[in-house]
C-alpha cells in the first residue's frame, strides 16, 4: 500500500488521530511519520479539508469551493468525494465520470500518465489488439534500450517485426 499522505512511498506505519470525535486512520510512510513526529499535529493532518493551523494565531478555513466539492457524493453509489480524495478509492464506474476532474487530478499525482497504454478488452477485434500489442512492445523496447539490456532488445525487435508482418499480411494499415 502506498503512503496515504504523499502517495509516493510504501506505507509502513499506521497513524490514528481523533478527528471530530471519531478515530481516523491512515497508513503512512516513514518520512511522513517522521514529519509528524518532528512538527507535531500542526504539520500533519489526516483530513485534507480539515482546517489546519496556518500561521501561529490564525486559522486557515477551507475555501468554499473545496468545501462544497468535498460534500458531493456519487449519484449512483453514494460514495463521498472526500472518500475518493482521501482513500484514492472509488465506489463504481460512474464515479469516474461524475468526478472526472478530481480523479484526473489524483491520477496525475499518482500515475506517470493518464492515458491507458495496455491491453483492451478481450472481445475487442483482433487487429486492434495487434496494434495495441505493437505499440506496447515499441514502448517496452525504448525502456529496455534505456537500461542497456540488449539481449532482451533483440528478442523484442524480432517480436515487433513479426507483429508488423502480421498486420501487413492482413492488408491493414501499419502503425506510425
Amino acid at each position: 500500500m502506498l503512503c496515504q499522505k504523499c502517495h509516493q512511498k510504501p506505507a509502513t506505519a499506521r497513524y490514528i488521530e481523533v478527528v471530530e470525535g471519531r478515530a481516523v486512520e491512515q497508513h503512512v510512510c516513514a518520512d511522513c511519520l517522521a514529519k509528524y513526529l518532528q512538527g507535531g499535529p500542526e504539520a500533519f493532518t489526516l483530513n485534507e479539508v480539515k482546517p489546519r493551523l496556518h500561521e501561529p494565531g490564525t486559522r486557515m478555513e477551507p475555501r468554499p469551493a473545496v468545501q462544497r466539492r468535498t460534500r458531493q457524493s456519487c449519484p449512483t453509489c453514494n460514495t463521498a468525494l472526500s472518500v475518493i480524495m482521501d482513500k484514492k478509492m472509488v465506489g463504481c464506474a460512474e464515479c469516474y465520470r461524475h468526478f472526472h476532474d478530481v480523479i484526473e487530478e489524483v491520477l496525475i499525482r499518482i500515475q506517470p500518465d493518464t492515458q491507458h497504454q495496455g491491453r483492451g478488452r478481450a472481445r475487442d477485434d483482433a487487429r486492434a489488439r495487434i496494434r495495441t500489442e505493437l505499440r506496447n512492445k515499441r514502448a517496452l523496447l525504448r525502456s529496455v534500450l534505456k537500461m542497456e539490456d540488449y539481449e532482451q532488445a533483440a528478442v523484442l525487435r524480432d517480436e515487433i517485426r513479426r507483429l508488423e508482418a502480421g498486420l501487413r499480411s492482413g492488408g491493414g494499415e501499419e502503425m506510425p
Binding site: L107, Q111, P112, Q117, A139
Partner: peptide, 11 residues
C-alpha cells in the same frame, strides 16, 4: 510495481 496507468502490462 508502483504504477498501472501509462505503461503496458509487459513494461
Amino acid at each position: 510495481s508502483q504504477h498501472s496507468l501509462g505503461l503496458s502490462e509487459e513494461e
